[in-house]
Design a protein around this nucleic acid. Structure first.
Lengths: 327, 327
DNA sequence: CAGAAAATGACAGACGTCAATCATTTTCTT
DNA sequence: AAGAAAATGATTGACGTCTGTCATTTTCTG
């Protein structure tokens, strides 16, 4: 009835518990024929090591470091909140996390796994090198660093861009498409990916040259405002980065003749704008889900397993399908 | 460093381990002042019972029953597959599931929790009554039974309908909207909810009277084909249930003048149709996620906790953001 | 105040695994 | 064949909790 234990495996394999243990945990000093017999018994019985008992015995607790930039981007703070919530939820599962903004304290070198959120955004790169030197496995979240990370959890930004393109095409049925992309910064890989995606979907002819607003609301208001005045034929806006707080009053002033607007990340501002019909679509990374997946992956890595490759499909929000306000 | 144990709690509270245990597990026979002191110590230390050790000791293993109709709906089989995959993934966590199609064997009465998938679809209702009689807590998945279930995991179908409505409105910008809703069955609560949602979003004027195809591909082909011939001014289709295999050839025959099509559930057929530009949008329940959430909820229930209310936000798929083919 | 009832403490054996030690057996060298 | 090296077995005490028993202390009751 109950699942087989390692004792059962040993018995079936005709070896002692010690030997079975040596095989299971790769402690060495076992004849290859014994290894084979144990392997076979594990296979036959469908034995799965009881992780709970194992962790208990090892008095293992998972110590994870979370490295998220301290920016008040709204987005990063929701990531931070999600980590705290998940930590609370997993407290009974021996998971503790330490959050450090990239700035002050250095990353703990003695943790089981670290997650870097929004890499490339700033000068987190030395921290990563430090972790790598200390042999701490690293998971990247939101933004990837294709180098020495074990797993990347986040959306595919090219796909996100293509999706934005499709939405614009649907909204333009029959009319000429003239979409202005608004970048945070062309040096950010994520933003470049989104831009490439939307360009691929719409075709260069329908896409105006992008403007750059440094993820900043004031610059957004100024530069986007000017662009809209200079080219009244703009029929769509794809805001690729942050700073959308500056976009919203512009749309309000344009009234019902405003262009079709697609932007990223569900924040209190973008939610309100959706509700007020000032923008049309929000493409969201679902930070809470990303965080949960990241912790799962980190746990798997700490357990020596291969983390399951999780592809987060970004959520598409309209006014109608907004999730309940967490407030 | 390590988390506090119940021994620590007892020491701080100035009582024996036994007493602390009696309080923690509500075994009774404890003076109220002792209860208070233990409570306080738990609070002060931030004690959290180590579920792994607890489960190990209790030799608890979670036995869950999964009740999913045997239909080859494509959708239900993906649910079934998702359960098998999750069971495999959680084997190390003492979770075993038994899948039973509603038909043959009766539901096991001695499991910790049961999940009913797609209730209302067929004659699963007696099974639920049986479970309730046996005091087995029930979780509903996909379709709700507001009665005696502990949790419902699934999408909000009214919201899904509204979302479909919004998509049609976006696609019709400036043109008159004339959408034909295609029901599986008006007696299904889920379908009624979706219909209500789309009606609310588009307004009755833009919505034709629904046709009913009994989730059947042949009926879909016949009835929808006739409807399209009789009213060539139809500009949109919202397929609320199953049987979309019958819709696809109709769209192919209409060529580029076909209406804008929104339908539910990502299956091999709908995926292919998206890719071939024969339909425009798929609203998907994300069965894998629902299943994972359901198992989490069941585990929480089995542990005597209150399951976290999970709202699944349906995914919206276009040709551009299809997830990788699992094949 | 004696006796009953209630509350508490002390202890032990599980659960399945880990990790370490030590004794014993088998296999390999030369 | 003797000695060294390798492989194996046997055993033990954790890890934190559960569950049960039994003895002891405290509190209540009449």
């Amino acid at each position: 009835m109950g699942n087989p234990t390692l004792h059962d495996v040993a018995r079936v394999a005709g070896v002692s518990y010690s030997t079975a243990d040596r095989v299971l945990n790769g402690r060495g000093g076992v004849a290859s024929k014994s290894i084979e017999r144990v392997r076979q018994a594990i296979e036959d019985l469908g034995y799965r090591r009881d992780m709970m008992a194992a962790n208990l015995s090892r008095r293992r607790s998972y110590r994870f470091a979370v490295c998220v930039p301290q920016g008040d981007h709204g987005f990063f703070s929701s990531i931070r909140r999600a980590f705290l919530a998940e930590a609370e939820a997993r407290a009974g599962q021996r998971v503790t996390i330490e959050i450090c903004d990239g700035s002050a304290a250095p990353l703990p070198q003695d943790c089981d796994c670290a997650v870097i959120v929004g890499a490339g955004t700033d000068r987190l790169t030395p921290a990563i090198a430090g972790l790598a030197a200390g042999n701490v496995p690293v998971v990247t979240l939101v933004s990837d660093i294709p180098g020495s990370r074990r797993a990347y959890i986040g959306i595919d930004n090219v796909v996100a861009g293509r999706t934005a393109g499709r939405l614009h095409r649907i909204a333009h049925r029959g009319r000429p498409v003239r979409v202005l992309p608004v970048l945070g910064s062309a040096s950010l890989r994520d933003h470049r990916d989104r831009l490439a995606g939307v360009a691929e979907s719409l075709g260069q002819a329908s896409l105006l040259p992008p403007i750059e607003v440094a993820d900043n609301a004031d610059q957004m208001r100024d530069l986007l405002g000017r662009a809209l005045r200079e080219d009244p034929r703009i029929t769509g806006i794809y805001s690729i980065g942050a700073g959308n707080r500056g976009l919203i009053p512009l749309m309000r002033s344009l009234g019902s003749s405003r262009p079709f607007v697609v932007l990223h990340e569900l924040t209190p501002h973008s939610r309100a704008a959706l509700q007020d019909d000032l923008i049309d679509v929000v493409i969201d990374q679902k930070p809470a889900e990303e965080v949960a997946s990241a912790l799962d992956a980190m746990k798997a890595i700490a357990d020596g397993e291969t983390p399951a490759g999780v592809t987060i499909t970004p959520a598409i929000f309209f006014k109608e399908n907004l999730p309940e306000d967490p407030a």
